[in-house]
Simulated scan of single mutants.
Amino acid sequence: MGWKLFAFFAVLLACYGIADAGTFSSVQIVDLAIEVLSASGLVLMAFKIDFLPGTFWRGGAGAYFAYYAIGFAEKAFITHDGPASVIIENALTYAVFHTAVGYGLWLNGSAEQHAAAREITG
């Protein structure tokens, strides 16, 4: 139930991004594409729907982690606006959310391995 709620939240955020897409720069369009793909992967994982091979989702999780690690570093270490406590709080919130999304994508790519292991042991 928790992953379903989290996937729903990710879809809401992606929908907000789609609705606001007309005002985005090219970098923000890349962010939107990544968010829509990751929200789709979370929904597929939460509802146990097989779509695309597991290596796609595991590779996507790795790319997602790498892409947003740069964003985390920028928010945590490069941004100089506002008090340090606000910058750190925003960076940690950003990191926790994106870590959870990446982990969900990794689980989506690993679902077939877990199902095969359950068949062998169960």
Rank of each mutant, 00 (worst) to 15 (best):
A39G: 07
V11G: 11
G59Q: 04
L105C: 07
L32E: 12
I29L: 14
F6S: 05
I78R: 05
G62R: 08
I29V: 14
E119F: 00
T79M: 05
G59F: 05
E74Y: 09
L37Y: 14
A61R: 09
W3Y: 12
F97R: 02
S40F: 06
F97P: 00
F56E: 10
G104H: 06
K75P: 00
I78S: 08
I70T: 14
S25R: 14
G22P: 06
I49V: 14
W106D: 03
G60A: 15
H114M: 11
L107H: 10
G41W: 07
I70H: 12
I70S: 14
I120E: 12
H80Q: 14
Y16F: 11
A95Q: 03
G41L: 13
F8K: 02
V86Y: 04
T121F: 05
A33L: 12
L12Q: 07
W106K: 01
G54Y: 01
L13E: 12
E74G: 01
I49W: 15
A84H: 05
E112W: 05
Y94D: 13
L42T: 04
A7P: 01
A10T: 02
G60Y: 15
A19T: 03
L12F: 02
W3V: 04
L44A: 13
L5V: 04
E74D: 10
G17H: 05
A63R: 00
Y16V: 07
S85P: 00
F51W: 12
F77H: 01
F97Q: 02
R58I: 07
S85W: 02
A7V: 09
G54W: 01
S85H: 06
G122A: 08
G54C: 00
I120A: 13
V30K: 10
I88Y: 11
C15S: 13
R118D: 05
T79A: 12
T93K: 12
D81F: 02
A95I: 03
A84P: 01
E119M: 07
V30H: 13
D31Y: 13
L42E: 13
A21V: 04
S85L: 01
L44T: 10
T121D: 13
F8T: 06
P53A: 07
D81T: 02
A63Y: 06
F6I: 09
A111I: 01
S26K: 09
A39F: 09
L42C: 12
V101A: 09
T121I: 11
Q113D: 15
I120F: 14
G2P: 03
S38R: 01
A21I: 02
L107S: 12
L107W: 03
L52I: 01
A14C: 09
A73H: 09
A19C: 07
V30C: 12
G60H: 06
T55W: 13
G17E: 06
W106P: 00
A84I: 08
E112M: 04
A84R: 04
R58Y: 04
I34D: 06
F6P: 05
T23P: 00
F6E: 10
